[in-house]
Design a protein around this nucleic acid. Structure first.
Length: 287
DNA sequence: AAATCTTACAACCGCGATGTT
DNA sequence: GAACATCGCGGTTGTAAGATT
């Protein structure tokens, strides 16, 4: 399927925006609102492509932008969120009112990266650069191995009505995380982990069994093991209709009832120190 | 003072996701 | 379901301004 260019390349201005162009764009959006970026330039009398207008508005002209230097607190939040989310700049920006993803990305690349490196911290892994040499530790077993169980915490022999009533909600502690387990129709278990590392970020880690695309029959229901294919994080406080999705590659070839993270460390995704790649921020909700 | 290098950040580009026909 | 349109994201580039030689 061919992709048409977002705009006519000829007769279009490129590069830095002039004051007059800014004024035209701001004036148009103030009276008509945002929307349909493709048709906006013509309607606003701008020789720019819609994409360029959108970027200019979002990153520079929006009235709610904070601008100015980043505070120490903002630095800390960015670093913590980056350690959790990686280069998901839009998600990070959603947690910093008045800051844009582009601004944070630039700030990360020009300031924070260097700051972390000067402290001997690898900005990609958020681990000590020296600690990166601990590869051998994994082999010798000196490292603490964290297991994430994808098996049910439910007792299969529920006896009383009370037990049955409670079966849809259980709580437990695993490696310092507060874990709730819930039954969801068509999916045997969803484990919700309220992470404790950065409580001020108010993030919630949700681990679930894979979505069953095919008919979910009783035979499947009886299986005690299932594929750890979805692990997602969501805002623990609020929910919204906006969800950011970033699915991983197919992970369905691996099936364990208890997943030894150390055995898959070669896959290389470090999340909350779990060192797992089975990430699916399927409903990372931000407000 | 001029040339060169470095830094900061605005803007561009390509691509995937999603919506529409 | 295919084809196409649009949006939004993340990586990269271009360039102005400041620092250094």
């Amino acid at each position: 399927m061919g992709r048409s260019p977002c705009c006519e390349k000829e007769h279009m201005n490129k590069g830095a925006w002039t004051k007059e162009e800014d004024e035209r764009l701001v004036s148009y959006i103030k009276s008509h609102g945002e929307g349909c970026w493709r048709s906006l330039p013509r309607a606003a009398g701008l020789l720019r492509c819609g994409k360029s207008c959108r970027l200019r508005w979002i990153n520079y002209l929006r009235p709610d932008l904070k601008r100015g230097n980043f505070t120490h607190d903002e630095d800390e939040v960015i670093i913590k969120l980056h350690s959790l989310l990686g280069n998901k700049w839009s998600l990070i920006a959603a947690r910093l009112p008045g800051r844009t993803d582009n601004e944070i990305k630039n700030y990360w690349n020009t300031h924070i990266k260097r700051k972390l490196l000067s402290k001997g911290i690898d900005p990609n892994t958020h681990r000590s650069i020296n600690a990166a040499k601990d590869h051998d530790l994994k082999k010798t077993g000196d490292q603490v191995v964290k297991d994430v169980s994808f098996g049910s915490l439910f007792d299969k022999t529920e006896k009383s009505e009370e037990q049955k009533q409670n079966k849809n909600q259980k709580q437990n502690l695993i490696n310092g995380f507060v874990c709730k387990e819930e039954r969801v129709e068509r999916h045997p278990v969803v484990v919700v982990v309220q992470e404790k590392i950065c409580p001020e970020l108010n993030l919630e880690l949700r681990i679930s069994p894979p979505w069953q695309n095919k008919n979910y029959d009783d035979q499947t229901r009886e299986r005690s093991t299932y594929t750890p294919s979805h692990l997602y994080v969501e805002n623990g406080m609020e929910s919204s209709s906006d969800t950011a999705k970033c699915q991983t590659e197919d992970s369905s070839s691996i099936s364990h009832s208890s997943l030894d993270i150390s055995s898959i460390s070669s896959l290389g995704y470090d999340f909350l120190g779990l060192n797992t790649r089975f990430m699916d921020f399927r409903s990372f909700e931000m407000n």
